[in-house]
Computed example of a mutant assay.
Amino acid sequence: MYTTQLDNGTLNNYAVEPKMTYQEHPTVWEQKNYLQQGALAALLVTALIFTSVAVS
């Protein structure tokens, strides 16, 4: 972080910006993993909705 001072005595603090990196395209096994996680999440949400309907 670096600080500058204006003529009237006001201090301005500036954060150091991190180096930018770009996202790489996921591999085939990562894509399959994302698909499995999405299916599991959808199953969990569906079960929670059916449970809340059944309880009420």
Rank of each mutant, 00 (worst) to 15 (best):
A54E: 04
Q5A: 15
T10C: 12
T10P: 05
N13A: 15
L6Q: 08
A39H: 09
L48M: 08
M1V: 15
T10H: 12
V55G: 00
T4M: 05
K19S: 15
A47Q: 00
P26L: 01
H25M: 15
E30G: 02
S52V: 08
T10E: 09
K32D: 03
N33Y: 10
T51P: 03
F50T: 01
V53F: 11
T4K: 10
T21M: 04
V28T: 11
T51S: 12
P26T: 00
K32V: 06
G38R: 04
G9F: 00
T46K: 04
H25K: 15
V45N: 03
A39N: 13
S56W: 07
A47T: 06
T21I: 08
A47C: 09
L6G: 09
Y22D: 14
V45R: 03
T4D: 04
Q37L: 07
V28N: 14
N12A: 10
G38T: 06
G9L: 00
Y14V: 13
T3V: 09
T4Q: 08
V16N: 04
V45I: 12
N12L: 11
L40C: 15
M20V: 12
F50D: 03
K32Y: 13
F50I: 13
G38W: 07
G9I: 02
V16R: 09
M1D: 14
F50V: 06
T46A: 12
A41F: 09
Q23E: 12
A41K: 02
L35S: 05
E30K: 03
M1E: 14
T10M: 14
E17Y: 14
Q36D: 10
V45T: 13
L6K: 07
V53S: 05
E17C: 15
T51V: 06
T27E: 04
A15R: 05
T21Y: 01
T46M: 15
A47F: 01
E30F: 01
P26D: 00
T10R: 12
T51W: 06
P26M: 01
T46V: 11
M20Y: 11
S56C: 07
F50N: 00
S52G: 11
E17P: 03
K32L: 13
L40V: 14
L43R: 00
A39W: 04
W29N: 13
K32Q: 15
M1G: 10
Q37V: 08
L11C: 02
V28Q: 13
S52D: 06
E17W: 07
V16T: 08
M20S: 12
A47E: 01
Q31A: 11
Q23L: 14
L44C: 10
T3P: 00
I49S: 02
L35D: 04
L35Y: 04
Y22R: 15
L44W: 07
E24C: 04
M20H: 13
Q36K: 13
N8C: 02
L6N: 07
V55N: 02
L6F: 09
A15P: 02
A41V: 06
Q31G: 05
V53Q: 07
V53W: 06
E17S: 11
F50W: 05
N12E: 05
L43G: 00
W29C: 09
I49Q: 00
Q23H: 15
A15E: 04
Q23P: 03
Y2L: 13
E24W: 01
S56T: 12
Q5V: 13
T21W: 00
A54K: 04
A47L: 02
I49D: 01
N33D: 08
T27I: 04
A41M: 11
N33I: 13
E24K: 05
Y34I: 08
T21A: 10
Q36E: 15
A15Y: 09
Q5P: 01
